[in-house]
């Protein structure tokens, strides 16, 4: 095992550990407080859930630029649905189901256009990027939609009380439902990728679509399934984003989520050409991006320059991957 190979295979993990070590050696504030670590996961959850779905789409050789706008659309429909039932005291679950339903419908539409309509994924989802946002703005009259059910906002800050962990003030530390979902989704997705027929077919389609088709794989449905899965996860993510705000800013919510999600997938070692990738890489990729932001903020790096650092991280990650390709 050459150094280069290790670096390429586990580069993202090594980078993550190195950043943690930097924080150990040169701590700023209370980096290692349980709340901060909890926040790292919680802040990563919204992008993370989407990035996991994006991993499947990219594995099949596709791309989805519409997820950011879809977050806004799902959230808008979710809140409007919840408000409709506001008096009858229905649970916030209604909002969640509406979000997921819209996500599934949009993802399915993208997938069908790409697989059966044979339009390039970039084009279809670029149309979605414009269209879904516009639809959300239309629903919200160009502005914010507020929830009339306070329980939704409360739910955004509920979660599992971590056992044996005490906050600095001595109180309990709550892992929000969004973060819990992120971790659970990651586990299930790993399972799907490695231990189900769909997961292996997705890799086969991404590696060589024609050969997969000749091998009696329903390549079109594999693609539709991938975009639909991403749509559903985008809906879930939208629900948690909405819950934390107890409202949806239809013009801004979810902006650039697609780019952050794609960046996390690529940093995590999934090939943009498809056919090669992993879920854990994406999870670490998302955490890495969040950690970098947090560190920069804690160390007083201006927000204007933070984008540059993220850009460099993405480039380095891709360069590392490419180096390995030519050597095998």
């Amino acid at each position: 095992m050459k150094v280069g190979k290790v670096l390429q295979e586990y580069g993202v993990l090594i980078a993550f550990v190195v950043l943690i070590l930097i924080n150990v050696i040169f701590p700023t504030g209370s980096f290692f407080s349980p709340e901060n670590l909890r926040n790292l996961v919680a802040q990563s959850a919204a992008i993370g859930i989407i990035a996991i779905g994006m991993t499947f789409v990219i594995l099949t050789g596709g791309i989805d630029l519409s997820v950011g706008s879809l977050v806004a659309l799902c959230g808008a429909v979710g809140i409007l649905t919840l408000n409709k039932f506001a008096d009858s005291g229905t649970p916030v679950l209604i909002c969640c189901l509406a979000c997921i339903g819209v996500g599934i419908a949009a993802g399915f539409f993208n997938g069908v256009m790409i697989a059966f309509g044979r339009v390039a994924p970039f084009v279809v989802t670029l149309a979605g990027l414009a269209g879904f946002r516009s639809l959300a703005l239309h629903l919200g009259n160009g502005g914010e939609i507020r929830s009339q059910v306070p329980q939704l906002g409360v739910f955004g800050f509920e979660g599992i009380v971590l056992p044996f962990v005490k906050s600095q003030a001595g109180g309990p530390v709550v892992l929000y439902w969004g973060a819990v979902t992120f971790l659970v989704v990651a586990l299930i997705a790993s399972f799907i990728l490695n231990f189900t027929r769909y997961g292996r077919h997705a890799i086969a389609v991404g590696a060589n679509e024609k050969a997969a088709f000749f091998s009696a794989i329903g390549t079109k449905w594999v693609k539709v399934a991938s975009y639909t899965l991403l749509g559903a996860l985008t809906g879930i993510s939208a629900f948690f984003v909405t819950a934390r705000m107890n409202s949806v800013g239809t013009g801004s919510v979810g902006s650039f989520y697609e780019l952050d999600a794609i960046a996390a997938v690529v940093i995590g070692g999934t090939s943009l050409r498809g056919g090669r990738g992993r879920i854990w890489g994406t999870v670490v990729g998302v955490l890495l991006l969040t950690l970098i932001s947090n560190m920069m903020t804690a160390r007083g790096v201006g927000t204007n320059i933070q984008g540059l650092v993220r850009g460099v991280v993405i480039l380095v990650a891709v360069l590392l991957q490419r180096g390995s390709k030519s050597s095998d």
Binding site: I203, A204, N208, K210, S215
Partner: peptide
């Protein structure tokens, strides 16, 4: 090479 097999996958797959 391009239709019969998927070269990047292993023998078992």
């Amino acid at each position: 090479k391009s239709l019969g097999l998927i070269l990047s996958l292993d023998v078992v797959e």
